[in-house]
């Protein structure tokens, strides 16, 4: 899922300072699962904003709405009547959703209430962690299911750097060393010899370095 994190309240207050009426928009997909921008988070932020602005003597009207998906035109087009006379949309969807809604309602400012952070998993209740950078050229077969591009802070392809210690990354004791995880997998599978394979230079053109990416399935087009 795409994992996001709500912006600090002070920053959100500043974003909507100029408006008296906004639509606070959530999304029922990833940001709901990672508890950043679903119905619950929309309700909480809406109340916080109303209370804050009331206290400041500058009340704000906050309309709440949660779209099934902010990244799908089928749902995004249904927003028109909901926007009504709102002066701006404050979105708790991921960066994709924020942009896509803006593309459909070009007269509106669509403001981000969350920071979109990574593609990841829920490691445990309340803990999400990054797993994939979407480099467009998967090598998880070679590293037995642990991605060196994402999980090594330096995206090293041929082993850990000299800063790996006690299973942790040199960048932070909170971060597991990606290469320790890979070596652990090699050992578990009795395949440590596989470490000796030299990984060639990566073709980054399939990654963001090739420019914004697009996927087309002609057979699915209408």
């Amino acid at each position: 899922m795409i994992v996001a994190n709500r912006k600090p309240f002070e920053e959100i207050v500043e974003l909507v300072k100029a408006y008296k009426s906004i639509l606070l928009l959530g999304c029922n997909e990833c940001v709901t699962v990672c508890a950043a921008g679903g119905a619950k988070e929309v309700a909480v932020l809406a109340s916080e904003l109303r209370m804050h602005r009331e206290k400041e003597g500058q009340p704000i009207e906050v309309k709440e709405h949660v779209l099934e998906r902010n990244c799908d035109p089928e749902y995004v087009v249904s927003l028109a009547p909901i926007i009504g006379d709102a002066e701006a949309i404050l979105s708790m969807a991921c960066g994709c959703g924020i942009q896509f809604v803006g593309e459909h309602y070009r007269q509106m400012r669509v403001l981000p209430a969350v920071n979109t952070t990574f593609d990841g998993v829920a490691e445990e209740q309340g803990v999400w962690a990054e797993r994939c950078l979407g480099c467009g050229n998967c090598i998880l077969d070679k590293t037995l299911g642990v991605c060196p591009v994402t999980r090594c802070a330096k995206s090293l392809f041929n082993g850990p750097c000299g800063g790996s210690h006690g299973g942790k990354c040199e960048v932070s004791d909170e971060t597991p060393c990606g290469w320790q995880l890979i070596v652990d997998r090699y050992k578990e599978m009795n395949m440590l010899d596989k470490y000796m394979e030299i990984q060639p230079l990566k073709n980054w053109s399939t990654s963001r370095d090739g420019g914004p990416r697009k996927r087309v399935r002609e057979d699915l087009k209408l």
Binding site: N158, G159, G162, G163, S164, H165, G166, V183, K187
Partner: peptide
């Protein structure tokens, strides 16, 4: 090149040097 015999995982530190020599 450089190698850190004291970094982890220790068991691959000699192999890592072998890889660098092979490169």
């Amino acid at each position: 090149c450089a190698e850190n015999p004291f970094a982890d995982p220790f068991e691959i530190r000699a192999m890592r040097l072998a890889k660098k020599a092979a490169c």
